[in-house]
Design a protein around this nucleic acid. Sequence first.
DNA 1: AATTGTGAAATTGTTCACAGCA
DNA 2: TGCTGTGAACAATTTCACAATT
Lengths: 232, 232
Amino acid sequence: MNSKRTQAGTDQAVAAFSRRRISDSTIRRLSVYYRALGALEVEGYHTVSSRDLADREKLTPAQVRKDLSAFGSFGTRGLGYPASELRARIGKILGIDREWNVGLVGVGHLGSALVSYKEFQKQGFTIRALFDNDQRKIGSNHKGVIIADVKDLAAEIKKRKLSMIIIAVPASVAQPVCDMAVQAGIKAMLNFAPVSLKVPSDVVVRTENMAMELEFLSFQLSNRAAKERGSA
Amino acid sequence: MNSKRTQAGTDQAVAAFSRRRISDSTIRRLSVYYRALGALEVEGYHTVSSRDLADREKLTPAQVRKDLSAFGSFGTRGLGYPASELRARIGKILGIDREWNVGLVGVGHLGSALVSYKEFQKQGFTIRALFDNDQRKIGSNHKGVIIADVKDLAAEIKKRKLSMIIIAVPASVAQPVCDMAVQAGIKAMLNFAPVSLKVPSDVVVRTENMAMELEFLSFQLSNRAAKERGSA
DNA sequence: AATTGTGAAATTGTTCACAGCA
DNA sequence: TGCTGTGAACAATTTCACAATT
């Protein structure tokens, strides 16, 4: 009844943060909406409905509305959401309305590939520092960035004001690298080593384990095969 | 009361598949346990308790037991689980007790890195075929595998008995590549292009969007910063 | 007429707590 | 005694359904 939150506000988003508990899945889907809105804009949509977004991403319209309503009232009843404005709003919520300085540790096959990964730059994530422990690599110029010695990780994090690091080192050295970064004040890491890193509770880590994703597929294939055989 | 499922069986696992609905998160955690068990074995553990596993992966013992019990009774009350046997059981459940032939489409920076990715081979995922649409790459030998023309995708899938494909092509051509693979009978794909692919319901797709992972971190950092400022 | 925003209901996933067993 | 396996309690997430609004 008390419609304290009903009036649309210009900048409720930030306020909403502190009011509600936002689930990880909601944040993940916000990224999805952000991309979908970009594509829909290109296709000429001026306003989009929760159904437009849902159909595109195999979600339900209610899910889309619930997710968005956690941050404010961005739509117009009877009409839908203004595509480009909503996209900008979500960008702001995700914090990608600015540049982020990122460091990458481990310039091996995967690390090198990530340096060239266009999507990062496009979203405002700039890899400003590279680190390795291989003397042959240290000092060399990789895509315009000099590879530094991982021993100088802490110093460089401060000097270059890095706020996130990407860990692309072998599993055996991932934890030590992580510890160094935590010591230097890093609060967010994207980890590609197949280990779960131990960090203090104020540090966020996302571990991307590609072998695990194939295992997931393997399970699904095996499972479906079993079903077809009609196991007793 | 009716304890039809209470008696321990030698090979209940497969039967359990058809009986219960297994959640994606459970499968994901099975992969985690599989890795943890490998590490614990190396550390000399012969039996492990649900607590050993839980502590290591920041989960609860109950969660570990629930996950495992969905597939059968692998432990001994009072003792714990036999490490190496449990690991083998999980491997079998995940379907990684055999070789999987994998194709990779898009031999760019990321694609090349994935070909060299040791974890895949270690888990039994062998990249047996590479595809690209760049005439300069086609026919060349990459880590012992000849790069084929993506036009021959369907033929090669059948010839080489590929059961999964990894999509590492630009977003704009990911859907057409996906469609070709589906046509050729592929039922599982790991997609690195930042688009959500449309597939029939009997095909599993896992989309790995690395920019999205950084966006997740960005949100967390922005959110925490907002909290510290104490936004009104 | 169309579509949002949102409490309430339904569903799904996690944790508790304890009987059962080595 | 110690630890598994599991039904029951609890928590989180998703979907429903509808009043509110343009």
